[in-house]
């Protein structure tokens, strides 16, 4: 597309260069007008040609946000599905059909991106709490297990009666 644009630019430059006092005849003016029309037509075909995916700013923004969020471990499956559906439309040059999907994905991703710091903080705190609990488990086990074991041992033998063994006494 950029090549086409540059060729249009070159044509326009040539046109401007060719306008000089020496070429003031009617024929030249007509030919210049024709050239201008051709150049404009070429430009219009460039505009109407299918847009590439990367030139769609909303699409690239969505991809960037999805990359950041997924890199932080956030689930973006729904948004990825929307983007994949949008790609199908964009490749078929149906921008109108792709736009609502891109808008929806962008809105969802933006909301998730705004909430990212608080989500990450909560996630880190939760993880820290679990790690702390796991680290404390051996010490707690060492202190409480014998006591609990003794309690259970005694509870299971609560109906036992202690009798004096006369034979042993003798």
């Amino acid at each position: 597309m950029s090549r086409k644009r540059s060729s249009v630019k070159m044509t326009s430059t040539l046109l401007l260069a060719s306008i000089s006092p020496s070429t003031s005849s009617k024929f030249c003016r007509l030919s210049l007008l024709l050239l201008l029309i051709v150049a404009l037509m070429a430009f219009s075909t460039v505009v109407a040609s299918p847009q590439s995916l990367e030139s769609n700013q909303k699409f690239t923004q969505c991809i960037r946000l999805a990359e950041i969020l997924s890199g932080e471990g956030i689930n973006v499956s729904q948004q990825v599905e929307l983007l994949n559906r949008a790609i199908v439309y964009l490749e078929a040059n149906q921008t109108e059909a792709a736009l609502p999907l891109l808008d929806e994905a962008y809105q969802q991703l933006s909301e998730m991106y705004e909430k990212l710091p608080s989500v990450k903080l909560r996630e880190n705190l939760e993880r820290g709490a679990v790690i702390l609990a796991l680290a404390a488990t051996p010490a707690l086990f060492y202190y409480f297990f014998p006591r609990l074991y003794a309690l259970v041992w005694l509870y299971n033998r609560r109906s036992y009666i202690v009798k004096q063994n006369k034979k042993a006494r003798k």
Binding site: L134, A135, T137, P138, F141, Y142, F145, P146, Y149, A150, W153
Partner: peptide
Amino acid sequence: MIIDEEVLAVLTALVIVGS
């Protein structure tokens, strides 16, 4: 003590490895 100290040490070691 109802539970042997050596047994408790082994059990604690297992808990340490697990955690």
